[in-house]
């Protein structure tokens, strides 16, 4: 039977007004409310629905990050995923973890777990990269159904309606495949209390990138260095200071 891997990223909650650290080295994350990236919620919902419709037999939620990532996995388990895999990356390694390294982790896990689908959100609302799904597909040499607003499995193919600039387009791709969820794919369910209780009993495996044969350290910062971060609020404030004429 077939298995789906679904990626869940822990990000600063979308409603939080972010603050840049005084030394411009990043944004303040300590003591700030975090939650599951909204597009990952849509990905989880889609995976769980595919299981409910019996197209797949198991949904595995995966998150890469420090210990707190398990909280995000728990949320996914409460939404209906069967088990979790926490790929532990912390400290400096986590700070320099980018979409390319995460894609390598997902590609390795997809092979190890013999997944027939990997479903991710189209983008995370923190780094706004919109890369991980495409890169995971590339590394696996699988086709990609990105920015999906409708997914339909028929046999060993997936029909995907995609959100493109001028409207929608429909593609048909072979399985195994990588899908990324856009806004209109579904409306994620809320985890009910009984399901939250049940989720506590579900298993979360802990693995390290090295266990998967993925070297995240030597890649760190080779591609990108986040040098400085400057707030756009300043720019806006100066804009509104010249006076919004309110009638």
């Amino acid at each position: 039977m077939s298995r789906v891997l679904v990626g869940v990223k822990r990000v600063i909650d979308y409603a939080v007004k972010i603050r840049v650290k005084p030394d411009n080295s990043g944004v303040v994350t300590d003591g700030v409310k975090h939650s599951m990236n909204p597009f990952c919620e849509i990905a989880v919902e889609e995976a769980v629905r595919l299981k409910e419709k019996k197209f797949i037999s198991e949904v595995v939620a995966v998150s890469c990050g420090p210990a707190q990532a398990t909280e995000t996995i728990r949320t996914a388990l409460a939404m209906g995923c069967d088990r979790g895999i926490h790929v532990e990356v912390s400290g400096k390694d986590y700070e320099s973890l980018g979409p390319l390294q995460v894609s390598k982790i997902f590609a390795a896990l997809a092979k190890k777990e013999e997944a027939s689908l990997v479903i991710l959100g189209k983008q995370a609302i923190d780094d706004d990269c919109n890369q991980t799904g495409q890169m995971t597909a590339a590394l696996l040499d699988w086709p990609q159904g990105t920015f999906a607003s409708e997914v339909e499995i028929t046999g060993d193919k997936v029909k995907v309606v995609r959100e493109i600039d001028g409207g929608l387009e429909t593609i048909k791709i072979n399985m195994p495949a990588v899908l990324t969820a856009d806004l209109r794919l579904n409306t994620p369910r809320y985890a009910t209390l009984p399901n939250i209780m049940k989720a506590k009993k579900k298993k979360i495996a802990n693995v390290k990138p090295a266990d998967l044969g993925v070297d995240i350290v030597s890649r760190a910062c080779r591609g990108t260095e986040w040098d400085t971060v400057g707030s756009l609020y300043e720019q806006w404030r100066s804009r509104s200071e010249h006076g919004a004429l309110v009638f």
Binding site: G98, P99, L100, S103, D128, C129, N130, Q131, T132, Q134, M135, T136, A137, A138, L139, Q144, T146, F147, R162, E163, I164, D165, R219, R222, G223, T224
Partner: peptide, 20 residues
């Protein structure tokens, strides 16, 4: 939508981190 869909796939194949 075209560029965002395509270039990360190219970058991963070149084993480089793309910039969006």
């Amino acid at each position: 939508a075209f560029g965002k869909n395509l270039l990360p796939r190219v970058a991963a194949k070149l084993d480089v981190a793309p910039i969006s």
